[in-house]
Design a binder for these strands. Structure first.
Lengths: 159, 159
DNA sequence: CTTGTAGTTGAAGCCAGCTTTATGTCAGGG
DNA sequence: CCCTGACATAAAGCTGGCTTCAACTACAAG
């Protein structure tokens, strides 16, 4: 019945490499759960560290915190997640990374074909207009995956 | 001596696909140059369209506006840039894309080796701690290129 | 009990890259 | 001359992901 295996926010921060402010921010978002002491201080379970490792990994792969939250909410309630649980969550990342790599490769190959000519035509160039739709209407096809896109629907929706 | 080959901000926006507000913003940043009419309205040269195509291409490759500005400032002053000029500017992008692809590929391969075990160890996992430096001190090596990085020096500098 | 370190909160700030808004001016057709 | 639509500006807002600040409280060591 030791309560000492609960970790303070400072310890969690130190061991996970996240800043304390980030830990508190994540708890506010519901990504982490914390007990409170009588004096209202956070106490985290040890498993929080693995959760944070998942969060960092997901962020490295390019997931937003919203996506991370969705993924975490699919973990089984009531019991500590197993390796198999974490493994299942990260399985989909492979596809995501494949897409990102494919998109970048296509962009690079387009660049190769463009470099000699210096055209950068708004209508024809594969680099300045990757989807090859001269913005005839609508946002056009997505060439880069979300997160790598610089010319995405947020911008196009401006009109 | 036609002044009609100067374009209004609306025409530039329509032909380039950028929003008017973006065009004005870019001019404010010095990325674009514009003459002014007696009534203070912007008038752009036709070559501005190519400049905007360059900007879009650069953004697609992942350059920040600051980098774009630096690139554009290396164009010859006083004459309209040639195809060779544009070509020269975009030549370095190849390397940049190669690096991004390499980083993502390494991340994916690390993921493959992790998926079975679900470890996500903060110390050992290639995905949650790509540089394999357990944050022993300093920001650690950059595994992802800037712009793809989620765990970069901006965050690390917080401590 | 005192002191120092670590914790608490809400609100505000920061970054990039624009967009939106408010208010006012210009230009051209009728 | 008037109306309309395109243009002008400055300032504020937005998104995401935090960090920083100010003012205050908790807890453990001595």
């Amino acid at each position: 019945m030791r309560t000492t295996d609960l970790l303070t926010v400072g310890e969690i921060a130190r061991r996970s490499g996240f800043a304390e402010s980030a830990i508190r921010y994540y708890e506010g978002l519901g990504l982490l759960a914390a007990d409170r002491t009588a004096g209202n201080q956070r106490r985290f379970e040890r498993s929080t560290l693995r959760r944070l490792a998942f969060i960092r990994a997901a962020r490295n792969v390019g997931l937003s915190l919203t996506e991370v939250a969705a993924a975490l909410s699919s973990l089984p309630a009531g019991r500590t997640p197993t390796r198999a649980d974490w493994s299942r969550l990260s399985r989909g990342w492979r596809h995501r990374l494949d897409e990102q790599i494919e998109a970048l490769t296509a962009l690079r190959d387009g660049l190769d074909s463009c470099i000699g000519c210096g055209c950068l035509s708004l209508q024809r160039c594969a680099i300045s207009n990757p989807a090859d739709t001269a913005r005839a209407g609508g946002p056009g096809a997505a060439y880069l995956p979300p997160g790598l896109r610089r010319d995405d629907s947020r911008l196009a929706s401006a009109r």
